[in-house]
Computed example of a mutant assay.
Amino acid sequence: MPYVTTKDGTEIYYKDWGDKKGPVVLFSHGWPLNSDNWENQMFFLANHGCRVVAHDRRGHGRSSPAWDGHDMDTWSDDLLTLVEHLDLKDMVMVGHSTGGGEVARFIGRHGTSRVSKAVLVSAVPPIMIKTDTNPEGLPKEVFDGFREAMTKDRAQFFLDVPSGPFFGFNRPNAETSQGLIWSWWQQGMVASFKAAYESIKVFSETDFREDLKKANIPVLVLHGDDDQVVPIGASAHNTVKLLPKGTLKVYPGAPHALPNICAGQVNQDLLEFLRS
């Protein structure tokens, strides 16, 4: 399996599919998942002539179960190591949920010399937690509850999340997919406990407002207006105001898991944005 080693010795697993001479699309996954969650989009774009690359964040999937480095700066540095290893240029960066934060921090920390466009899907920026400067955010007690539930019984918590708000399966008349639930559970359970636990603080408390202001490239923001995990009012609506060249597309009635529940539409939107 392909790996790249970071400066602290962490091995980062990655997939590199499609036409190596095609347009480059780099994917960043959400919590507590891995690159497998992007396979629908990767398969689709690779079959449309793209080179698609996705990694498992440190402590997730097939990457090293690192004890340290679970913060946005380290994650963006890990991603830069991969980008430089593959010498990716003129790439479109795509991030879902926590991965959207990773994309924002990569741009804010490492610039856009290798990035032509970006897509933030159900993404956590600008900042999730409620603060004096972010009164629309979610109370810290929400994320304390996540940590408590995970410490008490991670296996059950990682069934409850996909069975309910993540895919929107808790909504009346929702068409439930047991396969998606178990796929989420499997991806979550192979993440190291420490990485998954510490990532809750990272995705909820990291402030991306200055990163978004530095994104001097076209950025497409995709978000469902029934997102129960990252509510659109405190995320996408505020994100697009901070982006110099941002465009928001709202998916009516859609949940947090746009790459899964709305895979066909997301695929088309990515392809159109890539070709625009």
Rank of each mutant, 00 (worst) to 15 (best):
D144A: 13
G164S: 06
G164P: 10
T151Y: 10
L138E: 02
F146A: 09
F157V: 00
D160M: 07
P135D: 02
A174M: 07
E175K: 15
P162S: 02
S177I: 09
E175W: 03
A174F: 05
V142E: 10
V142Y: 07
S177K: 02
P172D: 06
R154N: 10
F157R: 01
N173G: 03
N170K: 03
M150I: 15
F157E: 09
F166D: 05
P165Q: 01
G145K: 13
F146H: 10
T133S: 15
I127L: 01
P172E: 03
G137L: 06
R171P: 11
K130E: 06
F158G: 02
D160C: 09
A174Y: 14
V142Q: 00
D144W: 07
A155F: 12
R147T: 05
D160W: 12
G179T: 13
F167K: 13
F146L: 10
P125S: 00
F167W: 11
M150F: 14
P162A: 08
N134H: 07
D144L: 15
E141W: 07
M128N: 01
F146C: 07
P172G: 11
L159G: 03
E136I: 13
F158H: 13
R147N: 13
G145F: 12
Q178Y: 04
F169E: 07
R154A: 13
I127E: 06
M150D: 04
S163H: 09
I127D: 01
P139C: 00
L159F: 11
R147S: 09
T176N: 10
N173P: 09
V161K: 02
F169K: 10
